[in-house]
Structure formats: C-alpha cells, structure tokens
Design a protein around this nucleic acid. Structure first.
Lengths: 340, 340
DNA sequence: AGAGTCTTCCAAAGCGCTTTGGCTTTTTTG
DNA sequence: CAAAAAAGCCAAAGCGCTTTGGAAGACTCT
C-alpha cells in the first residue's frame, strides 16, 4: 500500500493525503480525519527510502565506531547503548553504527554527512581539541558530544559528568583521612575525562600542600590486568601510596588482586576509591571489601544524549549548551584512615 | 555532483555512466575507463538514498536491540560488535540497531523488513523454537543466527560454538580428576546455549554413572553477584560439589569471591572451569588462581557472522548451512584432583 | 550485397514520497 | 454586493538513482 493507491481509493490527490498525514494546516479537518482513518485501516506506512530521498530526513542517529584488530570497544559502550536505545525506541529512532578505521574516522564522518545517512551524530570519548568535534561542527550536522573536548574557539553542545569534581572530592576525603601519598590509576590520558580526573586529584592535594608524585600517576587502558600491574608497581617501589584512586571498576578488580597478592589489605594498608559507571554485572558493593566509588550511571547519560539528539533533530534544541552532571561519592568499606 | 551532472560533462547518458560505474558488461572498456576516471576525479559518490529507492538495497545490516528499563544488554555484545564492525568496515557495510521493546520484537522485525531498512539481519541469544527465527525465516530477509535455536521443521543458517562439546569436555576432565559431585552455574536456561552446556555436563556425568544433582545446577543472569550467590548456596548446603563449571568469566569472579569468603581455596577445595568469551579487559590467566576455561572468541564470531551476512546479501551464500565451531579447553591452575 | 548478430549507447519510465505553484470555491470585508 | 482574502484541493515537478526497451552502427556470414 503506497501513497498513490491510498490517494486513489480516497479519491484525493497524493498532495492532500500527504499533507493530511503530515499535519499540514491547509487541509480540512474532516478530510484529514478521513485520511488518517483510512491510513490506519489499511496499515499504510510511508516508505522511508522514498521519504528520505525527498526530504533528506532519515530518522536515524549515527555513531562512528572505531574498529581495528588492535582496537577494543569499551565495555562501557554497551551500557551507554542501553540508555540510548531505551530512549530511541520510544521515539522511533534507529541507531546506525558506521565502523571506521580507528586512525581515520574523518573519512567516515564525511561520508555519512555527505550521504545524508543520519540526521544527527554523537561523539564519545573525546580528547582535547578533538578533530572529530571540529569536523562535525563545520560539517553542520546536529551533534552532541558525550564528554568534553577542550581548546576550541567555538562552543559545542555536550553532556558530561563532573570528572574533576568527583575525583577532587574523592581525593579530598582520602586526605582528610590522613593520607599523604595518593596514587591515581587512570584511563588513557589523551582523553579529556582522564585529564579532568587527574586535575581533580591534583587540586585536592595542592589544597593541602601536597602533590601527586610523578610515579604515582599512571594512565593505561582500563583492563583488569593493567590495574593489577599498576598497583604492583606502585606498592612495590619505595614511597608507596597509602591510597589509590582508580578510574574504573574493572581496573579496580586488578587493584584488589594485586593488593592481596602482596599480602596487604584494603583498607588496612591501602585505601581505594574507584569510579563506577554502574554496570548491572559488576557492583562495587560486592567486592570482597565493598568499594567506595564515585558513581554516575553511564546508562542515564546514554538516554540523555538520545533525548538531546532527538531535540536537535526536531529543532527543539539549539545553541551550544554544555551540561555537566554532578557525581555521587559513595563511601563504603574500602577507605580508612592512613596507616601509621 | 550527481549522476546527471557527471553524465552531462562526459557527454554520455546517465544510463551509460551508471552502468559503467556498476560494472555492467554492455559498456565499452574505453568508455568505462573514462567514466571511472572522471568519477574519481570529481569525487562522485552515488547518493545512497536514491540508489536505495531505486534498488531496495541499503548497504546495511540490522540488529533488533531488545531494550527496556529492566533489560541489560550483555557485555558480550560489545566484543561481538568489535568483530562484526571490523569486517563490516572493510566491506562498507553499516550496522543499524533498531531498539525494540524486549517483549515485542516482532513488530520491529516486521517494520525493518517491510520498510526495507536493511539488507540482512542477524539474531543473537536464540532460544529453542525462537519466534524471531521463525518470523525472519518467513519474512524472507537474509539472516544468520548467532547461536542455535531448536525444534523447527525447517533449517536455517547459523554460526554457533560447540557448547555441549565444550562443557562435556570440561566435565569429563573434572570427573577424570576424581570429582563426583559437579555443579553447573549456568546462564539463563531459556537460551539454547545454556541448555546445550547443561546437556554436555550431564552427558559426561552419565558416562561415568553420575548425575547432576537437582540442586547442583542453577541458571541465572550472568553477573558477578549471581555467581557469588550461587556459589555460596552450593557450598553451604550439604552435599557440596567439589567442582564447578561456570558459564561466564564474570560470574566466575563471584565464584572466586564466594569460595574465598567461605575460607576455602581453589583448587584445593573446589575446582573451577569457566567459559571464556575472550574479553580484552578480563583474562582468565589473571585470576588470583589462573582459571581453566573453555575458550572461544566471541569477537571472531562477530566477524564471521558479518562475513556470512555479506555473502548472503551478495548471493554468494545460500541454503541453510549451520556451522559449529569447536571450543578449546584450556587447563590452568584452577583445577585439581578431588579432595579426599 | 543483404540479412543477421553483436556491441555500445540512449531516452524515458519508474522507485514513492514531498513540495511548489496555481486553481476553485467559499468566506470575509468595505 | 463586488472585491479581496482565505480555505481547500490538485497537477506536476522534483529528489538521484537503476533499468527497460529500443536503436544505431559495426561486424560476421552466406
């Protein structure tokens, strides 16, 4: 059942039927009702390919997925996706993932924009002066950044969490508990979130006249193994920290294992605070010692990003407003006063 | 730059240019070269929306993503996606995720087929007599199932791993080591993979005249917490098992924690074998006691599914061939002879 | 040399929708 | 009550591609 047939059986023109269906004003309400009714009765659904060719609208949002043999997609992604999908579903939006060579995403961005394959895109894991953000900004497609970039001469719309504030609070708590030597096991420090977290820790330390030792900060891919290695290194060298802030629950698994392997305890010898993105399958309260965390649901962020993208597509949202969500600091058993 | 313009500047008809570009035989090689050349020089890329309307081909593969507040997307998904994306990239395929109410995916399948939104779909986590498989089969869109369904009167194409064989081997090893009371901590037993794994364990036990006790098998969502709970329950009751087979590395984290909490050791008191889908961020060799596993890279499966989908789209693959991959049994420190 | 075959190209008809520009008919207005 | 404005509808022109059904010219064959 296409428009032509529907129009024919209603003895109306395609124009009128189309307008009736799309809510244009220049059609009699009585007629509109008839059309709507017939459309529903015959299960008429406009062909998206045709509509797309005519309008350029696709009803899809895009994400360029970096791939490659050595590229691992972050497990956070799936949780983000849950939120995004949840919102998108209720608004009949689909998500198209365009895989791209991790080292050349630009080509793919250009393609999906030139081809009008999606109505909007989002960008995640941005770095300072991220080229994707600049590119997408000039290409003129609606977008939202999940996280923040920095150092542009233009503003852009983003949704981020207060990484700096979160790690500032975490560090401040540890300092108040008497810790003097903190360490930070961070994610890839080319990404803004990691930079912000480090900044937060440093700021808290500085406020008490302390510093984050050169060797007390490390930046690695967020795997269990890396958490383990970093911790071993930290604790086996001289000047070992008495407290660790850690950027991910998965790395924290490795931290806990390393501490145990060294015959030390949490929080007796080492206090630990990790960032929790809220995975359903790994909860900080269930660690052998319940883990203190800075908590922010990445799933909620996904839903929010979808919401903003939808708003931008339909013109409800404009401008370059950035929003920064506060982060909870949840204290559990893994922190204690510094050992004497 | 569109076809019309290109044709005009070459003083050829759109027909000829189109055919030259798409490799039809009825065009002079010399002409084809000219066309190809000009196309490249001017960066001509056919508009996919238009092509799509004309041919019905989209260059996209689809996946219906079950969503809902209480629905958690499996973290395996992201790893599968890595593989899929990796292959898809090299073939200029995009993946469209259509979020659907987890309880009504049928509507979404019908929509994406009726609308011709994708050229093919894949289905994951199938159950016996899975309605999605039956539906997609009758709808006539090319598809591949990742995993297996059962109990149809038709065949369908799938790629699965030998879950039964893997768990059969695992159980057999444990039995050979003298274990008599095995337990299985399984995933959702409405899904085929879980059924197959249980079958594998039972078959191995039966071969030695043993059985899988009623209370020695549990089927839960694969979270750390559920692994923990299941293990506590198993080990605290009478008739506690001396060996555990576990369907996921994430649950195994909980198993290990529970064993430790009870003051027991692996493999001294309990042997443990878990299934490993090969996550880059959590490796069995890095468990406090290196974990024996049945191993199969879900990432490779993703790539394979993409490959088969591409083959089906282009007509290179037909029929309903199912392929079953063997699974490695990797023995590490977490298994030992049964305690006396 | 005329008939039949290829080879190579083209005009035009879709694909199914939206949107422009205009044409009636009805309603409002001075 | 005539003129102007508004309401309601339509034909047709896109959107940019593929594909059908020729047709012209070159080649082969008897």
């Amino acid at each position: 059942m296409n428009l032509k047939q529907l129009a024919h059986m209603l003895a109306l023109s395609q124009t009128t039927v189309s307008r009736a269906l799309n809510g244009y004003p220049e059609v009699n309400e009585e007629t509109r009702r008839r059309v709507m009714d017939a459309a529903k009765r015959h299960g008429y659904r406009p062909n998206p390919s045709a509509r797309r060719l005519a309008t350029g609208k696709t009803g899809m949002i895009g994400y360029v997925l970096p791939t490659g043999a050595s590229v691992d997609i972050d497990p956070h992604f799936v949780e983000f996706l849950s939120g995004l999908g949840d919102y998108a579903r209720s608004h009949e939006l689909d998500l198209v993932l365009s895989p791209a060579d991790a080292d050349d995403q630009e080509t793919t961005y250009r393609r999906i924009v030139a081809n009008r394959q999606v109505d909007a895109v989002y960008i995640s894991s941005p770095r300072p002066a991220d080229r994707r953000v600049a590119l997408v900004n000039t290409l003129g497609i609606p977008f939202i950044v999940h996280g923040r970039s920095e150092g542009f001469d233009f503003d852009y719309p983003f949704t981020d969490i207060d990484n700096e504030g979160a790690f500032h609070e975490a560090a401040r708590l540890l300092i108040q508990l008497g810790h003097r030597r903190l360490a930070l096991i961070n994610g890839d420090d080319r990404e803004t979130f990691a930079i912000h977290r480090e900044r937060g820790v440093r700021r808290a330390l500085a406020a008490s006249g302390l510093e984050l030792g050169e060797r007390h900060v490390c930046s690695v891919a967020m795997t269990e193994e890396n958490g383990y290695r970093a911790t071993r290194r930290l604790l086996e060298e001289g000047d070992a920290p008495t407290a660790i802030a850690c950027s991910s629950l998965i790395m924290a698994l490795g931290v806990v294992r390393a501490v145990r392997d060294l015959g030390l305890t949490i929080p007796g010898d080492v206090s630990l605070i990790a960032h929790d993105d809220v995975f359903p399958w790994l909860r900080p309260e269930n660690f052998s010692v319940p883990l203190s965390t800075t908590r922010s649901s990445i799933r909620l962020a996904g839903a929010r990003i979808a919401e903003r993208l939808a708003a931008r597509i339909s013109g409800l949202e404009e401008g370059a407003r950035g929003e920064v969500w506060p982060v909870d600091l949840v204290v559990r058993g893994s922190v204690a006063g510094a050992p004497a």
